[in-house]
């Protein structure tokens, strides 16, 4: 029997530490994709909290949120925290987007949007017994190739892939609804023959529940699943939440102090 409480505590702890690491690193690096990293971090924490129990290959299709992935890999001991000291600096091992082979979990170079899902599907087709998790952004669904991939996933019933859309409802300049809205995303996915599950992407319990049912019952109805995780861009820092300019930005010393203060107040 899985001790859900243990994983829940672990996940919450991961998120708490990772948010602080993200903000400190972006402050030090003088810039970075802070908003999206903070929206996706609870998803990453939950996914990797289960790594000790379940095996999977992970593809971060929204590659610009690499920092959130790196701090998560630090949580599970795959990377040493010292890598954050040099993040994005000259001659660093880690730049703005995932580089294949830079860590054992990073098996694909992403950064251009609309590639990761197709890649994951190719891998999943070739390795039907392996689990795959692919995280996309909602803005990424602007890319037509994402819809090509979703059709392929449905057609070939690739239930060994779990897609999670970090639906933070913002893109680079403004809100997704004001660019190319996908707010009836559940229906769109259903129309594609996929099962859409809508959850709160910051509720660790909901995320864990859905991940566990993927790991334990992925083939139960032979329909591939897409989790639409409703999230908030900049989650955890009041002045960043839902404010478009925090897509990619550096922090002033005052903003940094304030951000860390807010995050530390939420200690778990």
């Amino acid at each position: 029997m899985l001790n859900l409480d243990y994983f829940l505590q672990k996940t919450k702890r991961f998120s708490y530490l990772s948010r602080i690491d993200i903000v400190n690193t972006i402050y030090k690096a003088k810039g970075g994709h802070v908003g999206g990293s903070l929206s996706v971090i609870d998803i990453l924490s939950s996914v990797y909290a289960l790594k000790e129990k379940y095996d999977f290959e992970f593809v971060l299709s929204k590659g610009h949120c690499l920092l959130a992935w790196l701090v998560t890999l630090i949580r599970i001991g795959e990377l040493d925290k010292s890598i954050l000291e040099s993040f994005y600096l000259d001659n660093s091992s880690f730049g703005g987007h995932p580089k294949k082979g830079s860590s054992s979990s990073i098996t694909w170079s992403t950064g251009s949007l609309g590639h990761g899902l197709s890649i994951t599907l190719g891998k999943a087709f070739a390795s039907p017994n392996k689990n795959f998790i692919c995280v996309l952004g909602d803005g990424e669904t602007n890319e037509g190739s994402v819809w090509e991939a979703l059709m392929f996933m449905s057609q070939h019933k690739l239930t060994n892939v779990l897609v999670i859309i970090d639906n933070n409802k913002q893109e680079s300049l403004t809100f997704t609804d004001d660019i190319l809205s996908i707010e009836n995303l559940n229906d769109r996915l259903k129309g594609f023959g996929l099962k859409a599950l809508r959850i709160d992407g910051h509720d660790h319990e909901q995320i864990l529940d859905n991940l566990l049912s993927y790991f334990t019952d992925r083939d139960v109805d032979n329909v591939p699943k897409v989790i639409i995780a409703d999230t908030i861009k900049g989650k955890g820092i009041s002045f960043m939440e839902k404010v478009p300019k925090w897509h990619h930005r550096k922090l002033t010393p005052e903003e940094h102090t304030l951000a860390i203060e807010e995050l530390t107040n939420c200690k778990v």
């Binding site: 098996t107 197709s118 190719g122 891998k123 087709f125 070739a126 390795s127 037509g144 190739s145 392929f152």
Partner: peptide, 14 residues
């Protein structure tokens, strides 16, 4: 577009 990327994913999986 999907076809080419799917092929690349397959190649990486042997």
């Amino acid at each position: 577009q999907n076809m080419v990327s799917v092929a690349a994913g397959m190649a990486s999986a042997g």
